[in-house]
Write a protein that binds this DNA or RNA. Structure first.
Length: 512
RNA sequence: GGUCCGUUCGUCUAGGGGUUAGGACGCAUCCCUUUCACGGAUGAAACACGGGUUCGAUUCCCGUACGGACUACCA
């Protein structure tokens, strides 16, 4: 009988959730759903000095926006709670003490000044890697070097202390990563990491092992930055005697800067003009702000699809996947090993694809909302025609409005660069003729009619239509580029088109 | 510096001992067209390097180079 898959996403509430974290959450979600298991969210807030108010809400809202909510979380507790490490504080010490008891950990009383002095001494002695380990710990103040009585006295007096793991001197530590295969590290390169901090809180290393064990986590899917400490975690599972239920590890490739090299950072986004966070963020205390994909106009499905393909692919030529399809297609062995550079152009392409696949009704909603944000209204009888006319020209929902503007708002001024080239005597003749014809017209008016009438006007003046088309567009929309003109005319209706032409005729001096 | 991880078109990637090394984004050209787009077609563009193993290596092995992560009482 196979065990239920349980995975967790374990962010720290230290600020907005980085896009790399979002992808980690997504892969955890996809794996859990694919395996018919559970996706948990655990808040790793053991560093009280870095806690940022609002960050938890941000995490929750981000997952909600993407449609990948956790099955168990601080806001939806299952039966292995609490789901905030700060609320589990009381349980960690006992586990650390068990390790001390078993000889796998020890108390250390060194002050930060003493630690600093030790590092300096080792550096001066050209020790390649100054660290608290099996050698150096013999020279520090800890329960391994101090007499038992003194240790007891120090503890009793309330002197601050930490508990450090006692890394064995010679041991080959190995783990079988689901993405990277066997990874082997010698224990001599590991250091005696702090397990319990002097403030009584556990470090990540202790907390994540204890909690993953207690929460029944079967697979740990996290970023590659954790790979170097994974051997320590393996050792800890062994020390606790939990090897049998140790989760399987999968270390995800990093998200890299689009240009040059290195981990993708907020700075890169700012510099290149794209967000690296799912939602807008504002830290009320520091005034720090960050742009979000949602506010930039990205659709959650498109963003999700884009994100899924940053390091994973289905193995065939398909590119467009709904969340359900992603779940169906997902597998950890199709996750790549190497770092992935972030390409915003691809994200835009995904957004275009998803925008265009929306129904007219959905697009109308988006257009109306965008217009409203600009203080404008879209006449109900024109909305559908507008979105159908403009959607193929749009990347974001905001473009629906940008592209529709020229229909909704009559031009007050004209693109003079176009006017200088195209606004000539021929154009004026044709337009005058056309305006007159439109004013007199009262039948049904569609794109076909608009064009036939325009053609007739041109013919009447013995002028080739193609020669004056740009001028016609300029007169009615004020610019030289835009959606299909005849369709625009159809939406406007003959009277409005005539009015606009008349305004242009009255305003624009003949230049060309 | 040390430990660990990685390296196929500019980018995301497929592939895998013998292939014209495939797709997508982007780019270019052409077609469509009343403009700009959309769409269609075409094109330029990659196996980091050096040794092995092999009849044969981009693919397997070992080095080198390059890149990255980690190296806190942060996660």
């Amino acid at each position: 009988m196979s065990q239920e898959v349980r995975v967790r996403f374990a962010p720290s509430p230290t600020g907005p959730l980085h896009i790399g974290g979002v992808r980690t959450a997504l892969y955890n979600y996809l794996f859990a759903k694919k395996m018919g298991g559970k996706f948990l969210l655990r808040i790793e807030d053991t560093d009280q000095t870095r806690f940022v108010p609002g960050a938890e809400d941000y995490i929750q809202e981000s997952l909600a926006w993407l449609g990948i909510p956790a099955d168990e979380s601080p806001w939806k507790p299952g039966d292995v709670g609490p789901y905030r490490q700060s609320e589990r504080k009381s349980s960690y010490m006992q586990y650390a003490l068990d390790l001390v008891e078993a000889g796998h950990a020890y108390y250390a009383f060194d002050t930060s000044e003493e630690l600093e002095a030790m590092r300096e001494r080792l550096t001066a002695a050209r020790v390649v890697q100054p660290q608290y380990n099996s050698i150096t710990r013999t020279q520090m103040k800890n329960s391994l070097t101090l007499p038992e009585e003194e240790v007891k006295a120090r503890l009793a007096s309330g002197e601050p202390y930490v508990i450090r793991v006692k890394i064995p001197r010679k041991e080959e530590v190995r783990l079988n990563d689901m993405i990277r295969g066997w990874v082997m590290v010698h224990s001599s390169t590991l250091d005696d990491k702090v397990l319990m901090k002097s403030d009584g809180m556990p470090t990540y290393h202790l907390a994540n092992i204890v909690d993953d064990h207690l929460m029944g986590i079967t697979h740990v899917i996290r970023g590659e930055e954790w790979l170097p400490s994974a051997p320590l975690h393996v050792l800890l599972y062994k020390f606790f005697g939990w090897e049998d239920t140790m989760p399987q590890f999968a270390h995800l490739p990093l998200l890299l800067k689009p240009d040059g090299n290195g981990k993708l950072s907020k700075r890169d986004g700012d510099k290149l003009g794209f967000p690296v966070f799912p939602l807008n963020w504002e830290n009320k205390e520091t005034g720090e702000t960050a742009a979000g994909f949602r506010e930039q106009g990205y659709l959650p499905d498109a963003f999700l699809n884009f994100l899924a393909f940053l390091g994973w692919n289905p193995g065939d030529d398909r590119e467009l996947f709904s969340l359900d399809e992603l779940v169906e297609a997902f597998s950890i062995d199709r996750i790549g090993k190497s770092g992935t550079k972030f390409d915003i152009a691809k994200a835009k392409w995904y957004n275009e694809q998803y925008l265009r696949s929306k129904t007219s009704a959905e697009l109308v909603k988006l257009l109306v909302a965008e217009a409203k944000a600009e203080g404008m209204e879209i006449p109900a009888d024109k909305a559908e025609a507008l979105v159908n006319l403009t959607k193929d020209r749009c990347t974001f929902a905001a473009d629906l409005w940008n592209e529709s503007k020229c229909v909704i708002i009559a031009p007050k001024e004209f693109d003079m660069a176009v006017a200088e080239k195209r606004w000539n005597a021929d154009a004026v003749k044709v337009l005058s003729n056309y305006a007159g014809a439109l004013k007199a017209y009262s039948g049904t008016f569609d794109a076909e009619t608009a064009k036939t009438m325009l053609g007739a006007s041109a013919e009447a003046e013995e002028i080739k239509l193609g020669k004056v088309m740009q001028a016609v567009r300029l007169a009615v929309t004020g610019s030289g580029a835009g959606p299909d003109l005849m369709e625009v005319f159809a939406i406007l209706g003959p009277q409005e088109v005539a009015n606009r032409i008349q305004f242009a005729l009255d305003t624009l001096p003949v230049i060309a």
